[in-house]
Design a protein around this nucleic acid. Sequence first.
RNA 1: GUGGCUAUAGCUCAAUGGCAGAGCGCCUCACUGUGGCUGAGGAUGUUGAGGGUUCGAGCCCCUUUAGCCACCCCA
Length: 434
Amino acid sequence: MPITPRAYKGMRDHLPEAMRLRRFITDTLIGVLERYGFEPLSTPIVEYSDTLEGKIGDEEKLLYRLKYGDDALTLRYDQTVPLARVVAQNEGKLTMPFKRYALGQSFRGERQARGRYREFWQLDADIVGVDSPIADAEIVAVVVEGLRAIGFTGAKVLLNHREILSGLARVAGVAENEAGGVYRAIDKLDKIGNDGVRNELLKSGVSAEAAERVLHFVGISGSVDAVLAEMESVLANDAPALAAVAALRTICDVLTSFGVPADSFTISPSLARGLSYYTGCVFEAVLDSPPMGSLLGGGRYDNLVGMFSKRSLPTVGCAFGLERLFDLMLELNMGPRPERTIDAYVTLFASDFQNESLRLAGELRAAGLSVLTAYNPVKIANQFKEADRKGANFALVLGPDDLAAGVVQLKDLRTGEQQAVARDAIVAAIKTAL
RNA sequence: GUGGCUAUAGCUCAAUGGCAGAGCGCCUCACUGUGGCUGAGGAUGUUGAGGGUUCGAGCCCCUUUAGCCACCCCA
């Protein structure tokens, strides 16, 4: 009795057509990262459980646990904790600052929702071991450039800073234990509007007066310079928050120096992005048009990567979530058009001549072309049909007449034009016609 | 975690409780050395799974699985 074939819930197969788009996304992004000097890193999908435990609080029930003999193992749920482990384990071999990118899947047993899967691929980029705002700016630049390179030309990065939020809470007179509720509330500003945020603030116990101060602050808008200046005047007496404003100013200056377009980044006082482990700047990439939610996020977390190390390892990074980018690009019909990926399809005329055809295929492959051959000398029309469907640019025929004449029939499947090409000139003919 | 919606051919979807269909795709032929276009023909279903009501269930009821949407939460 055959069982019903099905992929495990929350996990997906990617057929060749989908994989071509996914490869386009990751190849393009990696190209950008390598221009910024990021180096590739790969770590195992499985870690000892004690490496991952205790890092994400009550989310631990989402972890996939494995047992192999006496080994307690866990599938990684992100690529940041493994980064911390590998950095600590190889301190002598890595020169700081360490700029690495890592492409791979992570696993969380979450209930499925739009854009959220139990197996998800991310391309993480982090700069470890330096607290310079230049590093923050590099990460933001990579995000802008990367998103635009894969086709999100309207992508924009919203910037804020953890210490500015803390300073806001202090200046507005919000009790320390209410600050979390404030961050959660203001992060929804775009979604629920001013009144919605006010309700949430009051509901979480913030005084009406403090709520109004918070609302005024998150309403600050305008050019980068104007927003930063206004923030400074509101935060006038809060030294850590003022330092954070200065850091944001430097980041924006550096972005401008890098040539990052001014319309691709802005300061957003309402951006909170969770709170968990960010310690410095935080950012989020959004789409202006069409208006979509967050594309990806990132920021500075100075206490995370050093957790297995004696040294302090300030880190800034981001993670391109492949699932979200992929789903969006499919939905918006983005990405390169399906293209022909096979250079040549060599037909088999008859078993008697198949060695000649296969020898020809071998020569084409040796010349660097991607080549398919027929496997059975079925009716030639069907072989042409298959060549077309597989996306071959050319179909080649070596029949008895051609062998006698010392030629190969070369048909361009894109134009329908066919010519007889001398057997020893065939590689050159294909290469020039490609 | 809460609430709602959906599941029918490979795909997108129809079908008053009464013979399971269409479009696209697929296969064959027109065309025994030439794909796409056109025309003619053909195949395809345990109606997600399990149970129940009924003379009779794709349709109604229960259970289950999976997916989608909103909320919650959030790397």
